[in-house]
Design a protein around this nucleic acid. Structure first.
Lengths: 190, 190
DNA sequence: TACCTAACGCAAGATATTTCGCGTTATGCT
DNA sequence: AGCATAACGCGAAATATCTTGCGTTAGGTA
């Protein structure tokens, strides 16, 4: 018999909050369970028992943050929807905690395991599909979710992680490039 | 007076080799300096003195792997060059160790610090610029390095890290999309 | 070849981490 | 309201990681 409510829920959110706070102040190596315990007021042993490892905890924090993030825009125009959505993603990557939490996801990858889309991104993909379906119903030509990820989301994440973050102004350029690709679509293999 | 040769060089390569081996067998949390020490036959204290932390060591390994990787193709055709280069990148991401070592780079990012392109990617960008310059000299219309990163490299890395790896067959699709964008280029802000 | 000392090996000691047993709290169910 | 027990707090014990001082090995230069 599980007990997700009451005290457990309070402990959970206290720990999550502490993680996000600490992420913005400390480099990765300094992050530790004892540190999170002190900041959150939750005992070390409790954290070890519930999450096991630091990176599992970070992964949990990230999944929550992703899946509870605001829904997709619905402005009546695909281009406007894409602009807002992309701007949302870009903004979230500016936020100090997000790139850090993303690393947690990266670190959860196990060598040799069959790679699967992480739960967090699966939720995102479903949301995006809804947005594209709405546009298709209006008769607009729409990209696939894959194209959207490759042309909008991937560049943002790539630059956030490896080079320099994408300036907010470039969001429009990315969207227009996607729509351009759509208009002159290269015939692919069926 | 520094002494990069002889014993130091042997120690360095022994440690690097041990890191790469261990990366393919162990999840991140299990990686540690003592483990690398045992596998490489180099004493712990030596590793701590030379590299300081595990993630600094991993970062060092990755930089070496990136900068010594085979040069860029030179086939006389931009499209063919791009195909080969992209296939190279895709293949390296299939290799177990590369995504793992990539994480090391990700982890070296510090909160709040001014983000810069990591040394490893800087080297890559220079190599790519050479390739593009050659094509431009032949009179071909060429993308910028940035476009190349965003349209070819970013999707590969994104999928390797967060969703599913890109099948080798899709490399051609990515290249043709890039060339398509090039042909119908959206006028950008000057 | 001989000298200087950078770089390493070794082992003990200092810190930091994770685990464990046991008593206490308070949730979910009847 | 009363009960069974999931979940937590606490502190000590067990591990693991990291540092330090000192003796030894072996590059680099004269």
């Amino acid at each position: 018999m599980q007990r997700p409510g009451g005290r457990s829920a309070r402990v959970r959110s206290a720990v999550h909050e502490a993680v996000i706070d600490l992420m913005e102040e400390h480099p990765w190596e300094e992050m530790s369970v004892p540190l999170v315990a002190e900041r959150s007021g939750v005992h070390q042993a409790t954290i070890y028992r519930r999450w096991g490892t630091m990176s599992a905890l970070l992964n949990d924090v990230m999944i929550e943050r992703f899946t509870t993030a605001g829904g997709v825009p619905d402005t009546g125009s695909l281009r406007e929807d894409l602009l807002r959505y992309t701007a949302q993603v870009a903004e979230s990557l500016e936020d100090g905690a997000v790139p850090l939490i993303l690393r947690a996801t990266v670190m959860e990858i196990r060598p040799g395991e069959v790679r699967q889309t992480s739960p967090a991104f699966q939720a995102r993909e479903q949301q995006l599909q809804v947005m594209l379906d709405r546009a298709a119903d209006r008769g607009e030509q729409v990209p696939t979710v894959e194209e959207l990820l490759e042309l909008l989301v991937a560049p943002l994440y790539f630059r956030a992680l490896f080079t320099q973050p994408v300036p907010a102004k470039h969001v429009e350029r990315l969207v227009d490039r996607l729509l351009d690709v759509l208009a002159h679509r290269v015939p692919g293999p069926d």
